[in-house]
Amino acid sequence: MTDDDILAEFRGSEALLEGHFKLSSGLHSGHYLQCARVLMNAERAGRLARALVQKIPREVRQEIDVVVSPAMGGLIIGHEMGRALELDALFLERPDGEFQLRRGFRLEPGAKVLMVEDVVTTGLSSREAIAAVRREGGNIVAEVSLVDRSGGQADLGVPFYPLIELNFPSYEEGELPKELAAKPVTKPGSRAA
C-alpha cells in the first residue's frame, strides 16, 4: 500500500479533516485525522492492519506474543492488528487518568508486546501506555501506528513503525498563525487537553 493509497482511504472515508483543531496532545492544527472514520469499515480496517503488519520487520513480528493498544483511539486498529498477526489483542483504559489493564486482561510476566496506536503526534499517550504495560510485567518490542504526525520526532523509547508519516504542522496555543487563529477551534479527540 503506497502513501497515496493510504491517503485515499482517509479521504474516501472523510477521515482527513481541515479546519482548526485542538489535538489530544494540546497542540493546534489545521488538519485532523479521524481514525475512527477510516476504521469504521471492517474491510478497510483489515486492509490497513495488513499493510501495517508489513511495516514491521520479520524478526520483530516473530517475537510478538500479544498486541496491546490504548483506548479509545488504538482500540479498533489494535484489534485488527491482533487478527492480522493471529494474536490476542488487549486494550488499556484510563478510568482514573492513568492507563491500566481492566476487564480481566492480564499479561504473562515478560510477555513480548506490540503497542498499537492510531496517531502519534508528540508520543505522550504512547509513552504513558508503554509505562502501563511495563508496570503490568510486559516487555514492549515495538510500537506501530497508522499515522506518525511527529515528523519523525516522537521518542517512544522503542522501535516505531508507522504506516504513514504526515507532516501537517501543529502549533502551541500562543504560536498560532493568524489564519488558523481566525477559525473556530474544534476538539475532536478522545482525551481532554
Rank of each mutant, 00 (worst) to 15 (best):
G123F: 09
S13W: 14
R61Q: 14
P159M: 09
E43N: 14
M1Y: 07
V113L: 06
T2Q: 12
I6A: 09
P109R: 04
Q100T: 13
Y161E: 10
G174W: 13
P109A: 07
A51Q: 01
R106W: 11
Q54P: 03
K187S: 12
A193S: 14
L146E: 00
R94M: 11
L156R: 01
V38N: 04
A49P: 12
A51M: 10
V185A: 09
L39P: 06
S145V: 03
P109G: 02
G104R: 13
D148R: 01
V60E: 06
M40A: 14
Y32N: 11
A36W: 04
A45F: 05
E117S: 04
E93D: 08
S125L: 13
S126Q: 09
R83M: 11
E9C: 13
L114I: 11
V68W: 02
E179G: 11
S150L: 05
R149T: 00
L75D: 07
G174R: 13
V53Q: 05
R47C: 12
H79R: 04
G174K: 15
A36H: 09
A111D: 09
R102D: 10
L146P: 02
F21L: 11
Q62E: 15
C35Y: 07
V133W: 06
L107R: 05
L180E: 13
R106N: 13
M81L: 10
L33H: 01
L166R: 10
N41Q: 15
S29P: 02
V119W: 08
V116D: 08
K55M: 09
H28L: 00
A8H: 12
P109M: 00
R61P: 13
V53T: 06
A8T: 10
R44V: 11
L176Q: 06
L48M: 13
V67W: 00
A192S: 15
D4V: 15
K187M: 14
V119K: 12
V116E: 09
T186N: 11
R58L: 12
E63I: 10
G73M: 09
P188R: 11
E43D: 15
G137M: 01
P188V: 03
A182I: 01
Q54M: 05
L146Y: 05
R106Y: 14
Q62W: 09
A8G: 03
I64A: 04
L7E: 01
E18D: 12
T2F: 05
D96L: 07
F10H: 04
A181L: 05
M40P: 00
